[in-house]
């Protein structure tokens, strides 16, 4: 809780499983985190950690055979004078209901990783943005077009009126990602989910897009959930960070806490293993042993124990660690810190 205000979105013990023919894949298995209004939460993790499925679960667009089987996703909007919010649990809504469709794109919107494939190639950019605006508002065609042009210029696209009539293949990667952002902003969302928004872009374009997201966040006061595998991007953008491994949030904290005082052995190992431009050249990097386990083959107990340097036999492979709260916005999921929780509680 920040300044006594409740978070905008609270995900508690989310479980999204895929019932595939070959077996059960627990893509997200007990993920918990909070997103605060106007702040950026960075979700970091390697492939298969469930970061994209978490985003899709929030928007209720998990594909078949995936299903949310447990947990809550509480969205709080419209503060009442008494400090109360309208709370909805998104997991209880029907994905096709009117209410969910109003939230999707209107309150929470999404930008995808692949700006190449996320626009329709047979409709103009303008038509696709105008469609979003008209779905979520009562503007007429002309006003919606004016709003679309305004959005394009807001994201730094020159000659917006002409660009509206162009197709996605006529734009470069950077411009396409800008147009994607314009579309996501069409209805002034309170939460923007950005799933690897700059992964497909060059570094100079990436820097421009990150700058743009920061400016827009300041203007519109929206929260951003930034999903990425790039720790540099997270360090640059995030206020809070959640580190995911095999479907669980193993650690959450402020960006400074995660980068300067990491607790979980996975976070520590991950930070050590990235090559830095400040480190001397041609020295051996510390590595994390082994690879990410196959999803059908999830280790019993703590999912990280086969690769963990602090592995405690008989503990880590016997049962799953629970979430340990170490501060207002700080939690870790590891047996090493279970006693610290009591100590923290004693100080409060």
């Amino acid at each position: 809780m920040e300044n006594g205000r409740k978070p905008l979105l609270s995900v508690t013990n989310l479980q999204t499983h895929f019932f595939a023919d070959e077996g059960l894949v627990k893509a997200v298995d007990g993920a918990s985190f909070d997103i605060h209004a106007g702040k950026t939460l960075g979700i970091v993790g390697e492939s298969g950690c469930g970061k994209s499925v978490t985003a899709r679960s929030i928007l209720r667009i998990v594909e078949h055979p995936g299903k949310i089987v447990g947990g809550e996703i509480i969205l709080r909007q419209g503060e009442q004078p008494a400090g109360e919010f309208d709370e909805v649990d998104l997991t209880k809504l029907n994905p096709n209901s009117r209410e969910m469709r109003a939230i999707r794109g209107g309150v929470i919107s999404l930008i995808f990783q692949e700006p190449m494939t996320s626009f329709s190639p047979v409709h103009t950019i303008g038509n696709q943005i105008i469609e979003v605006i008209r779905l979520h508002s009562t503007l007429d065609k002309k006003a919606a077009r004016a709003r679309a042009a305004e959005l394009l210029s807001q994201v730094g696209i020159s000659r917006p009126d002409e660009r509206l009539d162009e197709y996605s293949f006529q734009l470069s990667g950077g411009l396409r990602q800008r147009a994607m952002i314009a579309m996501a902003l069409a209805c002034d969302p309170v939460l923007l989910i950005a799933d690897e928004p700059t992964t497909a872009l060059d570094v100079t374009t990436q820097a421009q897009i990150l700058e743009l997201l920061r400016e827009l966040q300041e203007q519109n006061h929206m929260a951003i959930m930034l999903i990425t595998h790039n720790l540099g991007v997270v360090a640059e953008m995030a206020d809070d960070v959640a580190v995911m491994y095999l479907g669980q949030v193993v650690e959450q904290g402020t960006v400074d806490e995660i980068f300067y005082e990491p607790k979980h052995p996975y976070t520590k190992a991950l930070l050590r293993s990235i090559p830095s431009i400040y480190a001397p050249s041609r020295v051996k990097l510390p590595t994390i042993e082994g690879g990410i386990p196959h999803p059908y083959n999830r280790p019993y107990g703590c999912p990280f124990h086969p690769r963990c340097p602090s592995f405690m036999p008989g503990v880590c492979d016997a049962k799953e660690p629970q979430i340990t709260i170490l501060g207002d916005r700080r939690q870790v999921r590891c047996f090493l810190y279970e006693e610290d929780e009591a100590r923290w509680k004693a100080t409060v």
Partner: peptide, 11 residues
Amino acid sequence: AIPQPDPRIRA
């Protein structure tokens, strides 16, 4: 332009 994995080196 490279984002650095260090929150102090921002912007």
